[in-house]
Amino acid sequence: MGKRLRVVDVERCVDCLLCAFACARRFGGGGLAKSAIAVRSVGGMERGFVVVVCRACEDPPCLAVCPVEAIRNVEVGVRVDPERCIGCGMCVEACAIGAVQWDKAERKPVICVHCGLCAQFCPHGVLAHEEV
């Protein structure tokens, strides 16, 4: 089986966003537009953070709602076919934990591919890339 990305200790998250920047670097450059991972505070930074990553659902709602079958199952998680995608955003709505991000410029979803690059750049042991 493949490896899955998992949030293992969110209490150590310091909101440095190195995971999100690492994710965006998959495409070569910097910034955050193409990041598939989101970090948000829990109502004030002093209360800590939530790190939102794709859970690689067995029965993914994002896939189920896609009207043009642009999302398909792979060994771990899903893949988006940008050629097929019509940018309707229904996958974003379908994910209960908000793990489908949105590339505003391209008008396409950004979904984690469980490559584990973010975990390599998490300095505080919040994320792990584990065998499923």
């Binding site: 070569g28 450059g29 910097g30 910034g31």
Partner: peptide
């Protein structure tokens, strides 16, 4: 802000 930042040299940047 959550835009893109292109770089001059991808390999050297990584």
């Amino acid at each position: 802000g959550d835009g893109d930042l292109p770089v001059a040299d991808h390999g050297a940047y990584q």
